[in-house]
């Protein structure tokens, strides 16, 4: 599962496979964090323009 695990065999398929897995996971985490931060900021500074496009 991880490059430091002893079973890690440095072969192409493994890098491509695990690479794409980590890429997908990281992209999901980034999207979630982005939305959470934006939602939090909206909540904090209570800008009133946000309720226009309900």
């Amino acid at each position: 599962m991880f490059p430091f695990a002893f079973e890690w065999v440095p072969e192409a398929t493994r890098y491509v496979f695990m690479g794409s897995l980590y890429a997908v996971l990281i992209s999901l985490i980034i999207i979630l964090h982005y939305c959470a931060i934006r939602a939090f900021l909206d909540m904090i500074c209570k800008k009133d323009d946000h309720n226009s496009h309900h």
Binding site: S20, V24, S27, L28, I31, Y34, C35, A36, R38, A39, F40, D42, M43, H50
Partner: peptide
């Protein structure tokens, strides 16, 4: 408010999420 904001922004990010889903 927070959940409303969260839903709103997630809608915004939906195309990228859908792209990851398609891949």
């Amino acid at each position: 408010r927070f959940f409303h904001g969260m839903a709103h922004h997630l809608h915004g990010a939906m195309p990228t999420i859908a792209a990851v889903g398609v891949f």
